[in-house]
Write a protein that binds this DNA or RNA. Structure first.
Lengths: 245, 245
DNA sequence: CATCTCAGTGATGCCCTGTAACAAAACACG
DNA sequence: CGTGTTTTGTTACAGGGCATCACTGAGATG
């Protein structure tokens, strides 16, 4: 019976539906931010939208399904934020690119604590993340941004030897045979290792700051600290040290 | 009426009560681990203990109160784990001390994901962290361990110049006047900065690993990676590079 | 023994999730 | 325009967790 009209333009109804789905996600996010929690009540979302709770089940089978959708959105948004930041620099200065990407990661985490927690934190109470699912995608994409930077540096001949050159056998084997990220094969292992170092530092800083564990410092001090840390990481990777943004 | 017997030894009843309080927390933790969630149901805890739910309200006014207690315990336990790891090394080798402390942090996060999330993640659903409360304590204590190491290195004359020596004015001012951690005043600012770098890296690695975002690597590769990262951080701080554990 | 305190229970109210049966609006088409 | 279908939303309800209350029984106290 049905099965034909798949490629046609979205009908009026489909557009309305998509808008509602979006409104639900936005409302849920707003509630998360307001309550500083990733634990959203379906009933509250509905109330905030002037609906009754069961209505939402027309759009999401489950509370988990909503969360999954929001997590996927989060991936995309973070990816976009990083890409946009890099694009805004214009492709010239490698150090500036790194700094902009790092700063974008940091900003995103701080301004979107809830989504950051959704993506990188423990699974939300009831939510069981599909194992081997989108979680790995997030990690790969985040790393992918750094990776692109390093590849660019190598192709330009601006990359220098990373600070630590020894590397364990298991890590070397895995990077060569089954690289965790796309083009890892083309990156020298020590450099790859330094990239992971950079990511860990970046992620750690973002977590600590986003969750308020760095609030003993003023905003300015945190900014300075972050810049210095990115410069340090750049040095570890053998990339040119970025200027303070 | 009452108000005298405060310093006396705990009575039989008090001991029983303390034991029950402890059993409740242990049971809750076991359930968290089992279900891979920080969301514990009061009813389930009671069931697991052979009680009915209302009985727990004799010991904790609230689900939040239980969580708060568990968070505080978590701080202490993490602190202890780090201190124990350092103590087990015996005070000789500075590099080994750093490696042991770092490894303890990592281990604790991985083996105790739920408590790690409890301490360093977003506040649990209902729980509103008292601003300026125990959260800062956790951060200070974690940093305190690194701090002690650096101070030890300095007193022994084993500390070298950190890799990045420039430091921003705001950070310098705050370290001097109102140090976020105890003895920061006595530590050169660039070294202090490198310490924070180390902590961020450590925390980031712990988070990524504990929450499964590093599972693209085998256990061995992760071990090697971690060792390399700690050595890199040691170098950044101007400490002697630790041998692989 | 009489009394008091406290751990624990069953019953209860409230709220949230998710399902089911039903009403009404939007749409499709003769 | 009118009729039948799809979609959206509603109310009603079962299931379960949180938290309170009034009550019982056991252990401590005089």
């Amino acid at each position: 019976m049905a099965g034909e009209a798949v490629v046609t333009a979205p009908t009026r109804r489909e557009r309305a539906r998509a808008a509602t789905v979006d409104e639900i996600k936005q409302t849920a996010l707003a509630l998360m931010r307001e309550r500083a929690t990733t634990d959203v009540r379906f009933a509250d979302i509905a109330r905030a939208m002037g609906l009754t709770a069961p209505a939402l089940y027309r759009y999401f089978a489950d509370r988990d399904e909503l969360l999954t959708a929001m997590i996927v959105d989060g991936y995309d948004d973070l990816s976009d934020a990083l890409a946009d930041a890099a694009a805004a620099v214009g492709g010239d200065d490698l150090g500036a690119l790194l700094m902009a990407t790092a700063e974008a990661y940091r900003q995103w985490a701080s301004q979107d604590q809830q989504r950051f927690a959704l993506i990188f934190g423990l699974p939300v109470p009831g939510y069981a993340a599909p194992s081997e699912g989108p979680t790995h995608e997030a990690a790969k994409r985040a790393m992918g941004n750094l990776e692109a930077l390093v590849l660019l540096a190598m192709s330009r001949g601006e990359a220098q030897a990373p600070l630590v050159s020894d590397i364990g056998p298991a890590l070397a084997a895995e990077c060569a045979s089954n690289p965790p990220v796309g083009a890892a094969r083309a990156i020298p292992h020590p450099t790859y290792q330094a990239m992971l170092h950079c990511w860990a530092m970046l992620h750690g800083f973002a977590c600590l700051e986003a969750y308020g564990h760095l609030h003993a410092f003023s905003d300015e001090a945190r900014d300075e600290l972050f810049i210095a840390e990115v410069r340090l990481a750049a040095r570890a990777m053998g990339l040119p040290a970025p200027d303070p943004a």
